[in-house]
Every structure is written in C-alpha cells, then in structure tokens.
Write a protein that binds this DNA or RNA. Structure first.
Lengths: 194, 194
DNA sequence: CGGATCGTTGATCAACTTCAACGGTCGTGG
DNA sequence: CCACGACCGTTGAAGTTGATCAACGATCCG
C-alpha cells in the first residue's frame, strides 16, 4: 500500500527507495473536516499541502464582504498561497476543506532541506508549477472569451461529477457570478432540456 | 558584457563558467519587428522565448473574431504556449511582437538536453513557473474582485510607463473590455482630474 | 424542534456592449 | 515625397447582460 504522494512523484521522476523514505518522513499528515480552514487570509502561510483525499478550495473576501473562490484542489493536487509561502508575507487567500479532506503537508524549511537532499524533486515541482501555470492561463482565456452562461456550460461539461460535490454558492463565486444568476441559469437549462 | 539570460539565471542559481557556455550555445537569438508573429494559433509551438529587449504579447482570436490579449512579456520574461510546447500539440495562442523585440529561443529537444547537462536549471525554471503561476492567480483575483473601471485604474497605477508603449486596443482586450469603453473611461479620468 | 444557511424568484437598476459614423494618423506604394 | 487606403481612437444611441435587493420556502444541523 503506497503513499499517494510517492505514487504521484514517480510518475514524473525516478527516485530510490531511500529517497522515498526521506520524502515520507518529511511530510506530516492531517485530516480536516468540512468547512475547516487550513489557512486564513492575512495570516502567515506556513505549509504546502498535498491532497490525498477530498477537496479544498482557495478563496478571499472581496470588497462586498462575499467569499470569492478562485480555485479548487482535488486528489493529487498541491495547494498553498504560493506567494505567501515563498516570501513569508501574509496570505492573500484562505484555504478551506469543502468536504472531509486528508492532506500531507510540509513547512518551507523542511521543503528546502528535502530539495537539497533530493535535487531531482526540483524537476518534479517544475512540472507541477508548469502545468498549474498553463492551466491558469487557460482559465483566463475562458473567462475572457466566454459569456457567463457559456462558462457555466463549459464547466458542467468538463467536470460533470465534480459539480455534484460542491455547494452552488461556491460554484457561482468560482465562475464569477452571483448565486441568484446561477439559479436562473439552472432553471433555463432545465426548461431547455424538456 | 554579459548575456541578459545568464544575468537573469545567476540571480537564482549558481552556475560555473562552463555551464554558462553551454547555456549560451544552446540558445539562438533573433529580432522581430513590430507586429511580427513568433507563433501562430493552430500551428505547432517549437520554441521557448526569452525576451532580451522589447515586448511581446500572447493572444487568441475569440468567437467574435477579435484578438484577445491574455498576457505580455517584457524584458527578462519567458514566453511560449506552455501547453503546446510541452505536449507538441497545436498552439491555442499566438505570440506577437508589440515593438521591435530581441529574443533568445530554444527548441524543446535542446532544452531537454540542457536540463540533463545542468540539472540545477530545473530549480531555476521551477522558480520561474512558480512565480508565473502565482502572478496568474493574482490576476484572476483582480479580474473577479474588481469592476472593469477599478481594474483599469489598478493597471495604470501598477505599470504607468508600460501603458505608453501599447496601443489602447490591445490594452482594452487585455483588461477584458471593448476599446469603446476604454475610451469612455479615459475621458472620464480626464474630466475627473480637472 | 428551532435557527441558520442555502437555493429560488421577481423587480429594478447599473455596467458594459454593440453598432454606426467620423476624424486623425500611420505606413505603403507610386 | 505625396496621396491613398487602412487602421485606430472617439462619440453617442440603443440594447443586453448580469448585479442588487428583498422576500420566501427548503434543508441541514445541533
């Protein structure tokens, strides 16, 4: 029975059994229940999280006082406030469990030690960030090129099973519109289908 | 007189004189004139570009046939269609010079060889993508939390000298609205200042 | 059972787009 | 070097999209 993080790492780089042990030792594990915060906006961001099971979301409070979700992390995704984790400054975002979620986590100093011990991990993380960056640009592309309605359709088609797992309020804020408007769209889809 | 790429790399990692030579040899240089394309949407994306001087933009054609700019690359920035460069699939974006621009560029195979020769470059690129990813998330944050007017103000305040360099049409599409509306905003700012 | 939160509905309103038209400027070919 | 065409920025009128606000029923959780 292997650690999901190790399983994920060996998809991109080769590591020895000893290195696997180093990695396993460097991470701690924890479970968060629904709605529990892993990080709060304005606090310092100590950890980098890897989702083994469950689902996280990253959000911030906008000028109207509403929670604005900006991304999700499912199984095998990394999540932290990258800027804050790296620089030691205060977090611009909060991270919260959407459902009960098991994570592995590591602090910055331990991560640096680990990267010294296993330099090839730099390649692994290079790939992780590379993909995350590319995905993020595609997201910007979609935001700008689609109407809110099309954006909703596109999301439903791309992640049909995932929309079942998240409250509509959160989905609405992720897509960039109000829960009321989402409600209207859903109604429209229903009448269209009949 | 040092190569700007080398100067940029040594800010994050230490490399030997020999390694510097390897890097210099691996890249080719080229100059593109204003409006010239470095990459076209739908074609294969062969190169990764590093801007030595000038300015590039990445854009795509939206469903209304208009060019939608999604990011810029100034001096010391990397740019390519990451997804297409990595996977070998067709580019989702075009890349164009906004002004006369000098770049260094490398193809995927040469880059892979170089990364084998100088593994510490993985760390350098890890940092590049990490920062690009974080910046991209901040951009999404701004898009969602600000009105178009505030977004425009924010951009003007953040890059006061850069707005002089780009046509308004391109700036409007980058900010996600029409040139007509940008024109209205500009007029409004002028009357407000008096 | 009771309170809080969530999704829904409808009316009103503001932000932004669309379209068409005009003057200015830039670059290109003669 | 001039003249022409193409493109760019601007204006204003009319039209859409999506936000806001308030109110109600449903559901979840303690």
């Amino acid at each position: 029975m292997e650690n999901p993080l190790i399983a994920h790492i060996v998809k991109t780089i080769n590591i020895s059994a000893f290195e696997k042990q180093c990695i396993i030792k460097a991470f701690k594990s924890s479970t968060f229940r629904k709605k529990q915060n892993l990080l709060e906006e304005g606090q310092s961001c100590k950890y980098l999280f890897f989702v083994c099971k469950g689902c996280l979301r990253m959000f911030f409070i906008n000028d109207k006082g509403a929670e604005q979700t900006i991304q999700f992390a499912l199984e095998n995704w990394w999540m932290t406030d990258n800027m804050a984790f790296e620089t030691g400054k205060y977090a611009a975002f909060s991270i919260q469990a959407i459902e009960q979620t098991e994570v592995l986590y590591i602090d910055k100093q331990s991560l640096e030690v680990l990267l010294e011990e296993i330099p090839s991990l730099n390649k692994y993380f290079k790939n992780i960030y590379h993909r995350a960056y590319a995905a993020s640009l595609m997201r910007i592309k979609y935001v700008f090129s689609m109407s809110k309605e099309d954006f909703y359709d596109h999301f439903c088609n791309s992640y049909p099973d995932f929309i079942q797992r998240i409250p509509q309020k959160i989905l609405a804020s992720f897509l960039g519109f109000t829960p009321e408007y989402l409600s209207e769209l859903r109604k429209k889809k229903l009448t269209e289908k009949i």
